[in-house]
Computed example of a mutant assay.
Amino acid sequence: MPALDLTQSSAALTRAVCDIPSVSGDETPLADAIEAAVSAYAHLEIIRDGDTIVARTNLGRDRRVVIAGHIDTVPINGNLPVEDRSVDGVDVIWGRGTVDMKAGVAVQLKLAAELTEPPVDITWMWYDHEEVDSALNGLGRLSRNRPDLFEGDFAILGEPSNGEVEGGCNGTLRAIVRTEGVRAHSARSWIGENAIHKAAPILARLAEYRAREIEVEGLVYREGLNAVSISGGVAGNVIPDACAVEVNYRFAPSRDAAAATRVVTDVFTGFDVEIVDVAEGARPGLDAALAKEFVDAVGATPKPKYGWTDVARFSALGIPAVNYGPGDPHLAHHDEERVPLAQIDAVERGLRAWLSGS
């Protein structure tokens, strides 16, 4: 596996990091390369937990910042190795991982190597298994194994944000709404009760639902309630006796899990509703001193993060956190995934200006 040269430009480092495939579950080669690269710098203490690499300064500063990024990607689909392209007159790096989120990781690696005397202590975290089941998430595992590493006053997650600051994140809930019927031969359908037909009111309520916009600490979060899958049926000549509609609710960070559950159960009053997964969001936390300094340094106007991200893990620990990274989140997981060179440079300049105190 080629070594990572942290003296390269962030763009060149993005290409190198992306060209080491690291689909979730296969992050070891990239984790090895990152560990080897940052271990060459004496100002960093290196800790490894599985395929999560932590590098931190211990300068005795009175404040500490945690900066994190995941190193795994969704599966490759003919989009590696990366390519330099021009799209609508914009110079980009095209390929898997460029947006989600190896360009952000590349910026972090470069700054971790170069910032030897920052005005705050910094804990850098590059973690595995973000794109799969939450139980496997490397950041979650690290928080259980080494909670001391999460001590900090402010956190930044390098998720793609178009180079803008996105505060907090929405929460997410998944529920299964079920109907029951009675099986019968489809030639004599009147003898049975069609569970799929009984799901019609569920879909009607979803179609009638209007997304709410809720202001939290000055940012307006847009909620959403949608069917994401439906299952039912026995055979081509059998009236189905069961149907299940899976629903996803994205809720503003002003609600906790209990409040989000009440919203969903109220919408589907009269139906069997099972909550199968819920992750609370994160409030913006932009009133924290370090957050204000960061926003001022990068010259940003904060926006809300509609999707759920790992900033919620920091928020749950009482650490205000924001998303800040290059790349259009609409292109995350897309086969045309690509990141503008200008955004990589802008994010590096913003973080460098803040972390160097200049």
Score class of each variant (00 low, 15 high):
residue 264 V to E: 07
residue 284 P to C: 02
residue 259 A to N: 00
residue 290 L to A: 03
residue 291 A to W: 10
residue 239 I to D: 05
residue 220 V to M: 15
residue 267 V to G: 07
residue 234 V to M: 03
residue 265 T to S: 07
residue 241 D to G: 05
residue 239 I to F: 07
residue 244 A to N: 12
residue 243 C to E: 12
residue 262 R to W: 01
residue 231 S to H: 14
residue 250 R to P: 05
residue 299 G to C: 00
residue 298 V to H: 03
residue 256 D to W: 07
residue 286 L to Q: 08
residue 219 L to C: 11
residue 223 E to R: 01
residue 217 E to M: 06
residue 294 F to P: 03
residue 288 A to T: 09
residue 241 D to E: 11
residue 227 A to L: 11
residue 276 V to T: 14
residue 282 A to S: 07
residue 223 E to G: 01
residue 298 V to R: 04
residue 233 G to F: 00
residue 269 T to S: 14
residue 296 D to T: 09
residue 299 G to D: 00
residue 240 P to L: 04
residue 223 E to H: 04
residue 232 G to S: 08
residue 279 A to I: 01
residue 275 I to V: 06
residue 296 D to C: 05
residue 257 A to T: 03
residue 231 S to C: 10
residue 274 E to H: 15
residue 296 D to W: 04
residue 253 P to T: 00
residue 233 G to D: 00
residue 252 A to D: 06
residue 293 E to G: 09
residue 249 Y to T: 01
residue 297 A to P: 04
residue 218 G to P: 12
residue 221 Y to C: 03
residue 276 V to W: 10
residue 280 E to Q: 02
residue 275 I to C: 01
residue 273 V to K: 09
residue 279 A to Q: 07
residue 242 A to P: 02
residue 288 A to L: 11
residue 245 V to H: 11
residue 234 V to Q: 06
residue 259 A to L: 01
residue 229 S to G: 11
residue 235 A to G: 14
residue 247 V to K: 05
residue 227 A to T: 07
residue 265 T to R: 13
residue 229 S to L: 11
residue 242 A to H: 12
residue 263 V to Q: 05
residue 273 V to Q: 07
residue 268 F to T: 08
residue 238 V to P: 03
residue 275 I to E: 02
residue 280 E to N: 00
residue 295 V to K: 02
residue 261 T to I: 07
residue 280 E to L: 00
residue 274 E to V: 15
residue 274 E to D: 15
residue 282 A to D: 01
residue 260 A to F: 06
residue 289 A to P: 06
residue 262 R to A: 11
residue 272 D to M: 11
residue 269 T to L: 12
residue 222 R to D: 10
residue 224 G to T: 14
residue 262 R to F: 00
residue 285 G to P: 06
residue 249 Y to M: 05
residue 268 F to E: 10
residue 286 L to G: 04
residue 288 A to V: 10
residue 249 Y to L: 09
residue 236 G to F: 11
residue 274 E to Q: 15
residue 242 A to L: 07
residue 239 I to A: 06
residue 230 I to D: 08
residue 280 E to V: 05
residue 243 C to I: 12
residue 293 E to P: 00
residue 265 T to A: 04
residue 258 A to P: 02
residue 292 K to E: 15
residue 241 D to S: 08
residue 256 D to S: 07
